[in-house]
């Protein structure tokens, strides 16, 4: 090594990676349980995915292919900078294609394409404790997890129905993992909750500021909490994607002008591009081509 500024592979030193891997292994063996770990300072601010980056750095190998998404998109600031970071410090191959990636670091979404065995999904988590806004004391929430006292979680859902007539929680919707731990699936829309259930891919969650790692191993039960008379439902959209015509996917609303014009497009950009390459066209795309 002649270049003094060279970093260790994937930025973190080997002892730190070892510590994080031990936390990950423990998290995998107790699905949904939050394992404390000695989170490091990363060269980015808290809230930008320091937890996810540390998990990715700890599991990344030279042969891996990395994909990073932010709100489903591969080309937003957070995704671009984290992808560039790992290209620089690990020199790994990167991709935007879901099916080519071995590790996918994500913020707010699970890709539309079904993940397969051998893939790992790394979530960036801001607040890992699902009970936090109901019970501010960490000592108490730990005890509640230990004793499986989850009545309080339903108090929140009860409040939702009492105030809005339906369960109004749309993201960070609490789930029960393998019949034991209640877990916050990070701020993903509840649309993605069913994808976590019995997934073939390994799902790892890293919270950098809160110093917690948790995991959902492949083929694990993930059940969204609900009431018997108000069952769990995912969001539904009236129209298909305006660009690729996809139905039953999560859509983003894009404001087009100041006259009330708006369009709904896939939040998963890779999924949308892939469909368009295969000849699918939505309403807006068809109109655009006609204009040309």
């Amino acid at each position: 090594m002649t270049d003094l500024a060279t970093y260790n592979f994937a930025y973190l030193d080997e002892q730190t990676k070892r510590m994080i891997r031990r936390a990950i292994l423990k998290a995998i063996s107790i699905p949904g349980y939050q394992v404390p770990f000695a989170s490091r300072e990363m060269p980015m601010p808290y809230g930008w995915g320091t937890g996810g980056v540390q998990v990715t750095a700890a599991i990344l190998g030279p042969a891996d292919v990395l994909k990073v998404i932010d709100q489903g998109a591969d080309d937003t600031t957070n995704a671009v900078s984290i992808r560039a970071f790992f290209q620089k410090v690990a020199n790994v191959a990167v991709t935007t294609r879901t099916r080519e990636a071995t590790i996918i670091q994500t913020r707010h979404r699970i890709p539309e394409e079904t993940l397969t065995a051998g893939q790992t999904l790394v979530y960036q988590v801001p607040i890992p404790e699902p009970l936090r806004f109901l019970e501010p004391r960490e000592t108490e929430t730990r005890k509640m997890h230990a004793l499986e006292e989850y009545g309080l979680m339903h108090v929140k859902l009860y409040e939702d129905i009492a105030r809005n007539g339906h369960i109004a929680t749309t993201y960070a919707y609490p789930v029960k993992v393998e019949g034991r731990y209640v877990m916050d699936p990070s701020p993903t829309p509840k649309f993605d909750n069913p994808k976590m259930h019995m997934s073939e891919a390994l799902q790892l969650f890293g919270a950098g500021r809160e110093k917690r790692i948790y995991a959902v191993p492949p083929h694990t039960d993930v059940v969204s909490l609900d009431f018997e008379d108000h069952p769990f439902e995912i969001q539904h959209f009236d129209k298909p994607c305006a660009l690729c015509g996809a139905e039953h996917v999560y859509l983003d609303e894009v404001v087009l002008d100041d006259k009330g014009g708006r369009m709904f497009v896939c939040s998963d950009t890779d999924h949308c591009e892939d469909r368009r390459e295969h000849g699918h066209a939505g309403e807006m795309l068809a109109r655009q081509e006609a204009a040309e």
């Binding site: 006292e149 009545g151 309080l152 108090v155 009860y158 009492a162 009431f227 008379d229 108000h230």
Partner: peptide, 16 residues
């Protein structure tokens, strides 16, 4: 309502 219902939910009542 939720204050009164909390104990019921804690012992497993799941019918709103």
């Amino acid at each position: 309502g939720a204050n009164v219902g909390e104990r019921l939910m804690a012992v497993g009542d799941r019918h709103y």
